[in-house]
Design a protein around this nucleic acid. Structure first.
Lengths: 113, 113
DNA sequence: AGCTACTATCGTCGATTAGCGATGACTAAG
DNA sequence: CTTAGTCATCGCTAATCGACGATAGTAGCT
């Protein structure tokens, strides 16, 4: 198996619990950052696409959205910087997938409102 | 009891269930709008304040935040336009409180990710 | 009426965002 | 080495955001 297996895309990490507090100044900042990243229809759509495909996608996202490739790339960058998605280089293309940990964290923070 | 009872602040409405779908184009827009409103630390703080007080507050919010009165008023406007809070005029001051319906809706949409 | 207190709105300024086309970087294939 | 394909980055423009001081509006007091 010299060639990287296509199944190694986004292996789920050891499912670690999040011990950080759900409120307080830091939590406020964190929630605001995450919410801000989600605060755009195109980015919500991207998250939904990644969730539906259960695995990763790459530039197919561009085909699904009515936006230029550079714009989509920007949105992906925002989501990545917020920690909500991860991008793994797979040959000439990049494979994006959800970061379940961050998503759970976001849900926990929102649930704590 | 000629003076308006302080308990009349924000009576909880009949606790109606939300029948709108949790995904689709409209849901995406809605989630993005709500998330955008929450996407600022000051607004998260305001929501937390309102939640803690269980009831409404007014300009005490200004005292709690390190921001000018006009800035706080702007943030309140954003939250109000997103439907997350409600403001009732109570004499010379305004009493803000959470809109539980919108908050539940937000949690449902986020949970659906 | 006049005054005071509280809040909303206006106008402004700098910073950020969203969108795009063009260009650059990188990989795989020829 | 060259070419083609994929994605990120750059540069730019228009629009929006965040913050503020100043101003206007409204309710209660004297």
């Amino acid at each position: 198996m010299t060639k990287a297996s296509a199944n190694e895309h986004c292996g789920a990490p050891p499912e670690q619990a999040d011990l950080r507090p759900i409120e307080g100044a830091e939590a406020d900042e964190e929630l605001a950052t995450l919410a801000k990243a989600v605060g755009h229809p195109a980015r919500v759509q991207i998250l939904r696409l990644l969730a539906r495909k259960t695995a990763c996608i790459c530039g197919d996202i561009v085909d699904e959205l009515p936006l230029a490739q550079s714009t989509v790339s920007q949105h992906l960058k925002v989501l990545k910087e917020a920690g909500l998605i991860r991008g793994e280089v797979d040959g000439p293309r990049v494979c994006y997938c959800l970061e379940p940990r961050a998503l759970r964290r976001f849900k926990a923070l929102v649930g704590g409102l």
